[in-house]
């Protein structure tokens, strides 16, 4: 490790992880299980979204209970662009990220004046507002949402509707962004963000522009979530207001804590465990939420560092 503050995986595990993710769909196709390629794409997308929330909660100390609205902003942007005839992912996905960023800038500018519980509540309130806007506007499909007749395309003769092609596109985006996130966390801005999490008053006193740094972090997280929303719209070929519901924000938070807030792969681990558990148990019982609730309660009470932390404890 370069320094004790360095965040991120070491080269060898990174290589192993990425290589196995690259090989995964090949194996799944060989055993004729295309369904699990779709599931893996979903896990990757949620891993990205949860990681963006982890940036806020784990590294920035900003407990936002409205993260789903940025996901929704990105998803609806992609859907509206497709309906307007703009079918290129090269345009739609950056636009989704931009939508998330703009919304985050607006919400952050107001919310970051408050602290603690009030911050939790005001992010929730803004997300609720976004929810009701989407529900009420007929141009956005109201309660029915919008259906995307086609996924956005990548050019080069690639078919985005092939499960494997879509998976690799998602994997590319996610790996790229996780690498970017790692750089950010080790860059001056990222370090300042973490220092503010630990003691904002002191940082303010030293002369750091606390509000602006936090806002920058908030906007970056919003943009990442927006991009995740864009991917999600493509995956499902539909968007609906339930993407923005407050329980969705709660679920994202659950992923972060389950995986381990403030651990680099915390969001990834949490998303994977939660989604795979849901998938695994959905055939056995309709009361999956009971199990998730019990596990979550146990994690909060007995392993507050999340599964990533638990792993470290066991490994030690």
């Amino acid at each position: 490790m370069a320094s004790t503050l360095h965040i991120g995986l070491r080269p060898l595990p990174t290589l192993v992880l990425v290589a196995s993710l690259v090989l995964l769909p090949v194996v799944l196709t060989a055993v004729d299980q295309p369904f699990y390629i779709v599931l893996a794409s979903r896990v990757l997308i949620y891993a990205l979204i949860a990681s963006s929330l982890n940036l806020l909660i784990g590294y920035g100390g900003m407990v936002s209970l409205g993260h789903a609205c940025f996901v929704g902003a990105g998803a609806y942007t992609t859907a509206v662009l497709v309906h307007a005839g703009i079918g290129s992912a090269w345009l739609a996905w950056p636009a989704a990220a931009l939508a998330g960023a703009v919304l985050a800038a607006m919400i952050g500018a107001v919310s970051l004046r408050t602290r603690g519980v009030y911050f939790i509540m005001i992010t929730l309130a803004f997300a609720q507002m976004a929810y009701y806007v989407v529900v009420s506007l007929r141009a956005l499909g109201g309660d029915d949402g919008l259906v995307l007749p086609r996924r956005t395309g990548y050019g080069f003769g690639l078919d985005p509707h092939a499960d494997m092609t879509f998976y690799y596109a998602v994997l590319g985006v996610v790996v790229l962004l996780m690498a970017g996130l790692r750089r950010l966390l080790n860059a001056p801005l990222g370090r300042a963000l973490q220092a503010i999490r630990d003691n904002d008053v002191r940082m303010e006193a030293i002369g750091f522009p606390v509000f602006r740094i936090q806002l920058a972090g908030f906007v970056i997280a919003g943009a990442t979530a927006g991009l995740g929303g864009g991917l999600l719209a493509d995956l499902n070929q539909q968007v609906s207001p339930s993407l923005l519901h407050w329980t969705q924000s709660g679920t994202l938070m659950v992923m972060v804590i389950l995986g381990g807030a403030g651990r680099f792969l915390g969001g990834v681990l949490g998303a994977a465990v939660l989604l795979l558990a849901q998938e695994l148990f959905s055939d056995v019982t309709t009361h999956t939420a009971l199990g998730i609730g019990l596990v979550l309660l146990a994690v909060v009470l007995f392993a507050p560092a999340g599964l990533a932390g638990l792993w470290r404890q066991v490994a030690r």
Binding site: Y36, V38, N236, Q238, D283
Partner: peptide, 23 residues
């Protein structure tokens, strides 16, 4: 007959449909 709950949400419904048709 596989029985699944869509929870009145299109997102859940979409995942169930994926399971029904592909798996």
């Amino acid at each position: 007959i596989s029985i699944a709950d869509d929870q009145q949400s299109p997102d859940t419904g979409r995942q169930v449909v994926e399971r029904f048709t592909k798996r």
